[in-house]
Design a protein around this nucleic acid. Structure first.
Lengths: 174, 174
DNA sequence: GCTTGCATGTAACCGGTTACATGATTGT
DNA sequence: ACAATCATGTAACCGGTTACATGCAAGC
C-alpha cells in the first residue's frame, strides 16, 4: 500500500485536510504505517485528479484556511478493492537488532545507551496506544490493531528487560 | 543503515560472494534487514572502489566462477563506526494490520485467508529462527537477536490465535 | 523575543525495486 | 522436458526523503 491508498484509508475515518491526515498517521496508524507531508500533499492532488476524493476549502479564523478532502464513492470502492488485493505483507527493519547482533563490537557506553533508548521508545509506543485504546468509539478491527500493537511492544520490552543484564553487567563469563 | 553498510556487516561474518551475501540476508539477517541482488551487486562494486572491501575470483568446477569479497581493515573500521553512529531506529510497515483495521469492510473469505496466511508466515519465521538457533557457534549478540525474533513472532502468533475467533466465527453479537 | 502549532507546498535527490539478460548444472 | 540452483549483472522506473519556503497566531 502506497501513500495514495493510505490517504484513502485515512479519509475512511472521516473528512480531513492534509495536515489532519498526517496526524492520523501519527496516532491511529502510527504503529503500522507512516507517511510524511511531502508524500501526502502530492498524493492528495493526484487522488483528486483521479476523482477518488473531492475537496472544499474551509475558512478559519485565527488559523490558515484549510483544504478538506472527502472520499468519493469511487474512492471508497477503490480503497476496498485495494484492501482485497493486498496480500497483507509486512516489512520490518531494525537497526536496533543489528546493533545487538554486533554487540561485542560496540563500546559499553553505546550498548547501554542503545538498550535504554530502545526501552524508552517501546514504553512511549505502549503509552500512546493504551491512551488511544481507552478513548472509546473503536470498531472491532481497530481494537484488534491497538491490542496487537500493545501486546507486541510489551513482549519486546519484556524480552529486553529480561536479557539486557547479559550486556550491561561486567562481562559475566559465559 | 543502507545496503552498502549492511554488506560490510554480512562480510563481518566471513568472506563471501554477492550470492552468498544474499543468502545471509535470507537467513541470519532475515528477520530484521533485507536486500536484493540488484541492491547488493552495485553496492559491492562501490565498496571496492572505496577500498572498504577487496575481492578475488574463485574458480569452481561444475559451477560458475564467483567473486569473493573480504573486508579490508578500513571496511572493518567503517562498519564499526557506522554501528556507533546509528541510533538504532526501527521501521515497521504492516498491510496485515491495515487489513485488520478495516476488517469490517472485508469479505469473510478474505479475512479468513489473511489471518491464516499470516499465521503461516509467522510459523515459518519461528521455525527458521529456531533452526538457526540450534546450529551453535553464535555470539551472545547473535543469540539475543535470534531469541528476540523468536519471542516477538511467538507473541504475535499467540495474539492472533487468541483473537481470530472474533473475526472468523458467525458474527457473535458485540 | 522565541518557539510551537497550524497549514501547504516544491525541488532535488537517492535508494531501492521490477524486470530483463545470460548460461551451465542438477534434480524431478 | 522442466524447474530449480548457482552466479552476476544492468536499465528503467518509482516512491519517498531531506531540505527549503512562507506566514500567521498563541503561549512562554
Amino acid at each position: 500500500m502506497n501513500t495514495k491508498e493510505l490517504c484513502l484509508g485515512a479519509l475512511f475515518l472521516g473528512d480531513a485536510s492534509g495536515y489532519e491526515i498526517k496526524q492520523r498517521f501519527e496516532t491511529t496508524f502510527s504503529h503500522f504505517q507512516q507517511a510524511s507531508f511531502a508524500a501526502i500533499y502530492p498524493a492528495l492532488t493526484r487522488l483528486k485528479a483521479e476523482g477518488l476524493v473531492s475537496s472544499r476549502v474551509e475558512v478559519q479564523e485565527k488559523r490558515p484556511d484549510k483544504t478538506v478532502y472527502s472520499l468519493t464513492e469511487a474512492g471508497r470502492q477503490h480503497f476496498i478493492g485495494a484492501l482485497h488485493a493486498s496480500n497483507g505483507a509486512e516489512t520490518f527493519r531494525s537497526d536496533f537488532i543489528l546493533l545487538m547482533f554486533f554487540a561485542e563490537h560496540l563500546s559499553a557506553e553505546k550498548l547501554t545507551a542503545v538498550l535504554e533508548q530502545h526501552e524508552e521508545t517501546l514504553r512511549r509506543i505502549i503509552d500512546t496506544l493504551t491512551e488511544i485504546r481507552h478513548c472509546g468509539g473503536h470498531s472491532r478491527g481497530q481494537l484488534f490493531t491497538l491490542d496487537y500493537g500493545i501486546a507486541i511492544n510489551q513482549a519486546s520490552l519484556a524480552f529486553i528487560e529480561q536479557r539486557k543484564a547479559e550486556f550491561t553487567s561486567q562481562e559475566p563469563s559465559s
